[in-house]
Design a protein around this nucleic acid. Structure first.
Lengths: 147, 147
DNA sequence: TCCATTTATATCGTGCGCGACCTAAAATGC
DNA sequence: GCATTTTAGGTCGCGCACGATATAAATGGA
């Protein structure tokens, strides 16, 4: 019978938790990001570039679990905002590399305050957030499983 | 110094885990839902109605952490698909109540198989999924904090 | 009763997100 | 070297998601 103990209530669906949590996160970030004139996906994309500048569209898309058809226009908006530039790779004419402008680099200094503010707001301590991260990554990797 | 031990790598940002996991979940559900002709948000909305029929737009939106401006057109699509009907409340002419059609009720029987399939695919056992759920709900509630 | 305020939903504009399709550049095979 | 295939981005259409705004119904005083 235990094998039929499948969650039937929406509150028990693991997917429901991620779905609603992502909405809540978006909403909580919103006031901070509005001051910077950024959306949440734009901000997340910039964090990847702050770690390593000059990444290809494809690389960024994989890290974000996102299709290039989503990322291309997003990066163009970041370009219009003056935070990044896009240029064809010298070694591979198909690939487009994304580079931070000075303005884009400067934004990096605003991030730590936002992050710490958000972390605090969750009400979870550091070890719990770490545990959550680990479970989420294992879940994600499991779902990607066969590639 | 520990107070400055703020995550600086995107992989350490708790928000990053939820963001990418939600994309992965969406993608994993996609093939199952395509057979039913549903999107993921539509499916999640139906699960709420399977628990309790005849809920108001407002109630559903709160449970989904979603604005009514998002839910209204979504529910209209479910109506066009023949899964639900919308009707003004008898007692409150402002409110719209959403009811499952026979067709909508029938879909419920397909859900357990999808759920169990997805749960298995995550690679996490039941207690880990439970732990994940708990952390996500605490995070969500913490972020909603002052409201 | 009447009118101001609040509440529930709907509408609109912008950006995210995906699948389907297109183009060009690179890699492969003969 | 040239034809075929694969890969990287880009474009398009549809649906999700939110904030701003609108409108109608309910509420609450004076």
């Amino acid at each position: 019978m235990d094998s039929f103990d499948i969650p039937k209530q929406a509150d028990d669906l693991f997917c429901f938790g991620v779905y609603t949590a992502s909405h809540a996160i978006n909403r909580a970030y919103s006031p901070h990001l509005k001051k910077l004139g950024l959306t949440y996906p734009q901000y997340i994309t910039l964090t990847l570039l702050w770690e390593r500048d000059g990444q290809k569209i494809n690389t960024l898309a994989q890290k974000l679990e996102m299709e290039t058809s989503t990322l291309t226009p997003l990066v163009k908006r970041l370009e219009n905002l003056g935070h990044v530039t896009r240029s064809r790779s010298q070694t591979d004419g198909r690939a487009v590399e994304v580079f931070l402008t000075e303005q884009g680099v400067a934004l990096k200094h605003k991030a730590p305050e936002i992050t710490s503010c958000m972390s605090e707001q969750t009400g979870l301590d550091k070890s719990e957030l770490q545990k959550l991260q680990t479970l989420l990554f294992r879940l994600r990797d499991g779902l990607n499983g066969g590639r």
